[in-house]
Amino acid sequence: MNALQPLRTATGSTRGASITAHNLTKVYGSGPSAFHALGPIDLDIAPGEFVSLIGPSGCGKSTTMLLVSGLEPVSDGSVAVDGRPLTAPISEVGIVFQDHLLLEFRTAMNNVMLQQQIRGLGRAEMRARADALFERLGLTGAEDRYPWQLSGGMRQRVSIARALVHDPTMLLMDEPFGALDAISRTQIRHDLEMLWMETKKTVLFITHSIEEAVGLSDRVLVMSTSPGRIVEEIRIDLPRPRPAHLGEYPEFSTYARRIFDIFEKLGVYRFK
């Protein structure tokens, strides 16, 4: 394997931030039409930890992400990042949504470098970081292609590079692989794990997939619906990097079974 450029450049790469939340609650609207979307929930995420939120649709997973990044105001409770209470959107964050949300009028590299343009960071330095990320994510050669010229998996890789190029302290991912085919999903999951092991960003990973949650996380928080609450916390003690074929670990099926059982108990699944 050829030598990789180090991701940590002169910026002195930032480690992950801690995320704490107490009584985090979100209610949309007011009066009789108010919708209680989330909480109250508590979160205590250590710096560099990989935490997944898993639960059925409408359990407030995405809302949690928006509250933790300060993009939506909390209805009650508080969020602190690295001990600092959050009052406005924080910028030391990278966000990946289910849709790639790349700008169709910018090439892959220019989509990533938009971060540099808006933030006014050093161009050469950011370009070096972007190049290193492209290499890690298997995007070398795709720099000058427009999003419509890329496959779904590659677009999502570009959006991961965009979320990491400015060296954030945390990475928020809202079902990032939800729209990908099974083969791309396995590969990109592995690539993300390798990237995380190298950079140790704090990751809040939102997913519907038990396999992704167990395959990637240090800790899985299982949520229930209306209002969204955390019903169980499961620590995943599996060595890293985890194999593409998780079935190799007998523990994997034990963890998966536990989450599955919780879903069944919650009525997410109703089997006859």
């Binding site: 990044s69 993009l71 959107p89 924080i90 910028s91 964050v93 966000i95 971060q115 808006i118």
Partner: peptide, 8 residues
């Protein structure tokens, strides 16, 4: 969301 978290 992306631009606001970028401080644009």
């Amino acid at each position: 969301y992306l631009t606001r978290s970028t401080g644009a």
